[in-house]
Amino acid sequence: MADRVYLDILGSRFRAQLSYRTSFLLDFAAQMVGQASELVVILVLFGRAKEMGGFAMHEVLIMYGIAGVGFGLADLFVGQLDELPRLIRTGQLDVLLLRPLSTLAQVATGDIQLRRLGRIIAALAVLVTVLSTSDIHWTGPKLLLAATAPLVGAVIFGAIWVVACSVCFWIVDGRELANTVTYGSNMFTSYPITVYPPWLRRFLAFVIPGAFVAYYPALALLDRPDPLGAPAFLSWCSPLVAVAAVAVAGLVWRFAVRHYQGTGS
């Protein structure tokens, strides 16, 4: 029943956005170009190096692809949280609070941006191409992993997004800080974590669980042991990390909304 409500909201969003066809197509193309420009960077870098952090180009591209699709999906479904400071400033959040629905789900579905499919499609195209041309020993579990890794990655990114944007309930200029975490995580996860210095790696890979988005799933797909010595089973743990991240994000969001109701700022 509740799901139908959100489907109705989503459906209306889609209709509204598709009615501005030219600007939609332009925005859609811009999203693809945005994702493609990250690809260009990786290609340029591999024009100057045979490997990065011990990984060959196709291996890095698998990470880039998983991270790109995951980030794109998260951006599509919770990217609207970036608008939170505006919703708070204009009082529009109060309107959402006055409806008998989850506030978070309303913010997410309220103005979902279909153009973000552009990024997802671009990343997916790269991921499929690289996976099908790489020399991967495919097994059932690995096929399942390849299919679910971007989705699990999206959930982890989504949780990061929710936590980062919750900051906006306390800090007026929180949007840029939140973007640093979300877009920063996207950049971080597109490369093997072995390229980063240890302290940065520890923070971005495990405190913000960025390593579980693309790095560990890619290791499992490639049958590679972790050069940093993590046990092999960690490569299959991303779904568990995603569940934990969602739980944390849910708690943080509840706390943040409570705080908002407590201050009304």
């Binding site: 870098l45 100057r48 190096a49 490997e51 990065m52 952090g53 800090i171 007026v172 200029d173 929180g174 840029e176 800080l177 973007n179 640093t180 920063g184 950049m187 971080f188 490369y191 072995t194 390229v195 980063y196 210095p197 940065l200």
Partner: peptide, 27 residues
């Protein structure tokens, strides 16, 4: 001013990641 503080955080974070990526190319 507070926007500048936020921007510094962003620039620093991305700077650290970019430099790591480029150093790994340098090898």
């Amino acid at each position: 001013r507070s926007a500048a503080v936020a921007a510094l955080t962003t620039n620093t974070a991305f700077g650290l990641m970019r430099i790591a990526v480029l150093f790994s190319v340098l090898g």
